[in-house]
Simulated assay, not measured.
Amino acid sequence: MQVLRPDAFVRLATGDTLLSWFIEVDRATESPRQLAAKCRRYRAYELTDLEYRQHGVSPGVVFVVPTEHRADRIRRVIASQPLDARGLFWVATKAEAVQTLIRPKIP
């Protein structure tokens, strides 16, 4: 398995809710092919079930992007992933990032 290198990792707990996130800060430098490969690596890691066994929750992946145009591009890459992998990923502009982390909407 390839090593994951997220830009950040966050765990948020409120009451009995625990949210866990890998955060990818996107600077619009990676091609769709590179983004798709990154998505596949995160999905392969999720399938190991390691995080769930250790912490009781599997992290989602949030791509924090500079513009809505870039968000659309990443959403297209995510839509090209297998159906059972797509729910792992969220996309948020910088302005939406905090809200997405604390109250994620089902993609």
Results as ranks from 00 to 15, higher is better:
V3R: 09
L4D: 00
R5C: 06
R5T: 12
R5A: 11
P6G: 00
P6S: 02
A8D: 15
F9A: 08
V10Q: 04
R11D: 08
R11T: 14
L12A: 08
L12K: 08
L12I: 15
A13L: 10
A13H: 08
T14Q: 10
T14M: 06
T17I: 12
T17S: 08
T17G: 03
L18E: 10
L18N: 05
L19N: 02
L19D: 02
S20V: 10
W21G: 02
I23E: 01
I23H: 00
E24M: 01
E24G: 00
E24S: 01
E24R: 01
V25S: 05
V25R: 02
D26T: 05
D26N: 02
A28S: 12
T29E: 15
T29M: 13
E30D: 14
E30Y: 10
S31G: 05
P32W: 01
P32G: 00
Q34P: 06
Q34A: 13
Q34E: 15
Q34G: 06
L35W: 01
A37E: 13
A37W: 05
K38M: 13
K38E: 12
K38C: 09
C39M: 04
R40S: 07
R40Q: 09
Y42D: 01
Y42T: 03
Y42I: 03
R43C: 10
R43I: 13
A44Y: 07
A44P: 04
Y45I: 03
Y45L: 02
E46S: 14
E46R: 15
E46N: 13
L47A: 11
T48G: 03
T48R: 05
L50C: 12
Y52G: 14
Y52L: 14
Q54R: 09
Q54V: 03
G56Y: 04
G56E: 05
G56Q: 04
V57R: 11
S58T: 15
S58V: 14
S58W: 12
S58E: 15
P59T: 08
G60Q: 13
V61F: 05
V65L: 02
V65Q: 00
P66Q: 03
P66F: 06
T67Q: 03
H69Q: 09
R70C: 05
R70H: 04
A71N: 03
A71P: 02
R73I: 11
I74E: 00
I74G: 00
R75A: 09
R75I: 07
R75H: 11
R76F: 09
R76V: 14
R76A: 15
V77A: 00
V77P: 00
V77W: 00
S80E: 15
S80D: 15
P82L: 09
P82R: 14
L83S: 15
D84P: 05
R86G: 10
R86F: 11
G87D: 10
G87P: 02
G87K: 03
L88C: 02
W90Q: 12
W90C: 11
W90A: 12
W90F: 12
V91E: 00
A92E: 09
A92G: 13
A92Y: 10
T93H: 07
K94M: 09
K94S: 11
A95Y: 07
A95I: 08
A95D: 13
E96H: 07
A97S: 13
A97I: 09
Q99G: 14
T100Q: 09
L101Y: 04
L101I: 06
R103H: 12
P107I: 12
